[in-house]
Structures are given as structure tokens and as C-alpha cells.
């Protein structure tokens, strides 16, 4: 088993999943917050842009988005993230195309997570802060957003867990991550298939379990007493 892990570079493959997840998560947080602001803005047109983005992206399969990034955006439109003369051009470009796909897809879910966080703030909080004379920016800064962020921790953690698992889809455009490594390992040693599967599965449990524990710890610790 150990030489199998070494031969197929299992740790390197998992490291690629972690990198994909980390970069996409940060970018999805940024994009998702922008979309959430659009959806929560008091202007009808912006609401429409925000909710259209969410409806379109949430209803498209991630596989299609990532394959489209490669076959459509790169092969047909020539979208390139790294200079062509790099020795690993294809691999590096595919990494960023996968990041692009993961980001735009999960940003829709981040937006919904933030919105559900805002929804946990009782209407009375906004009313009360207005009635004691806070202006709108003040009430947002002092009363609503601090509570909304706390309410959004658990849903955002769930999005992160889904994102970590979804990084495996990057194999569709030739990223040599763990799904790729697992397939090669089982093809090489079909008799040890179950063991290899368990190894990969435990790897994912080890990646997602801390996220779940951390978010549930944070959300109980920071919970707003009501």
C-alpha cells in the first residue's frame, strides 16, 4: 500500500485538491458577497441581476461549467491564465480554468448562505436600531451585519465542505488530482480496489471533518442569544 501511495503520488494529488479548494473558496467568497449585495440592495434592477446569476449558476451542473471552461473558453475563445511558453502550460492553465468554474458555481451558493445569514436577524433588530436613532449605515454596521455574519457561518461552512468534495470534478479537464490518481491506482491494482477507495475516502473525511467541527464550534461560540 505504501509504495502504491508513493508511486501514484497520492499526497501530491490531495495537495492539488486542497489548492483548488483554497483558491476557489477565497474567490467565491468575494464574488458571492458581491452577488449577495446585489440581491439585498434596495434597487429592483440589481436584485434582478443578483437573482438571475444565482438561478442560472445553481441550476447548471458543475461538470458542464468546468468542461465548458476548458472546451469553450480556452479551446475556442483562447482564454489563457498563464503564458504559453511555460513548460507545464496545459496543466497550469487547466488548474486556473477549474478554479474559474468552481468559483462561479460556488459563488451562487455563498450568496445564498450570506442571504440566509441576513435572514436570521429578526426584523425587530432593524426596527429597534432605527428607533433609537441610528442611521442606516450605523444600524448595518453596529446591529445587523455582526449578527448576520454569525448566522452565515454554518451555511458558509457547508458550502466549503461541498467545494472541497467538488474539486474532484476538476479531473474532467485533466487536472491530476485525487480522482485521477485513484482511477490509475485501481486500474493498476484492481485486486486492492476497495482498500484504495477507503484510503481516498478517509482522506476526504480528514479534509471535511475539521471544517464541519470548526464551523459548528464557531457558530455555537459566536451564537447570538435570542
Amino acid at each position: 500500500m505504501l509504495e502504491l501511495i508513493e508511486q501514484f503520488n497520492v499526497l501530491g494529488a490531495f495537495w492539488l485538491n486542497i489548492r483548488l479548494a483554497a483558491v476557489s473558496f477565497v474567490l467565491a467568497l468575494v464574488l458571492g458577497t458581491v452577488v449577495a449585495v446585489l440581491r439585498l440592495a434596495p434597487v429592483g434592477v440589481l436584485n434582478w441581476f443578483g437573482s438571475t446569476y444565482v438561478t442560472l449558476l445553481r441550476n447548471t451542473p458543475l461538470t458542464l461549467i468546468i468542461v465548458f471552461a476548458n472546451l469553450g473558453l480556452w479551446a475556442q475563445l483562447g482564454l489563457e491564465f498563464v503564458p504559453r511558453d511555460r513548460p507545464n502550460f496545459i496543466l497550469e492553465n487547466n488548474f486556473w480554468l477549474a478554479v474559474l468554474g468552481l468559483t462561479v458555481y460556488h459563488a451562487a451558493f455563498i450568496c445564498e448562505a450570506i442571504r440566509s445569514g441576513v435572514n436570521t436577524v429578526p426584523v425587530g433588530q432593524a426596527e429597534a436600531s432605527r428607533s433609537i436613532g441610528l442611521t442606516f449605515p450605523q444600524s448595518l454596521r453596529e446591529v445587523i451585519l455582526p449578527q448576520a455574519f454569525r448566522g452565515a457561518i454554518t451555511p458558509i461552512g457547508n458550502v466549503l465542505i461541498a467545494l472541497i468534495k467538488n474539486t474532484t470534478v476538476a479531473v474532467a479537464i485533466g487536472n491530476r488530482e485525487i480522482a485521477y490518481a485513484m482511477r490509475n491506482m485501481i486500474e493498476f491494482r484492481p485486486d486492492a480496489g476497495l482498500l484504495i477507495f477507503l484510503l481516498v475516502a478517509i482522506g476526504f473525511v480528514a479534509l471535511t471533518l475539521p471544517v464541519g467541527l470548526l464551523t459548528s464550534w464557531l457558530s455555537t461560540r459566536l451564537a447570538v442569544k435570542r
Partner: peptide, 15 residues
């Protein structure tokens, strides 16, 4: 719930 769907699909398929 913790294992990606794709991993289960690839496993079943290759096996």
C-alpha cells in the same frame, strides 16, 4: 455523506 459522488462513481466503474 463525506465522500465525493465522483469518487464513488469512478470506484464502481473501474472495479
Amino acid at each position: 455523506r463525506a465522500v465525493p459522488v465522483l469518487i464513488m462513481m469512478i470506484f464502481t466503474w473501474v472495479m
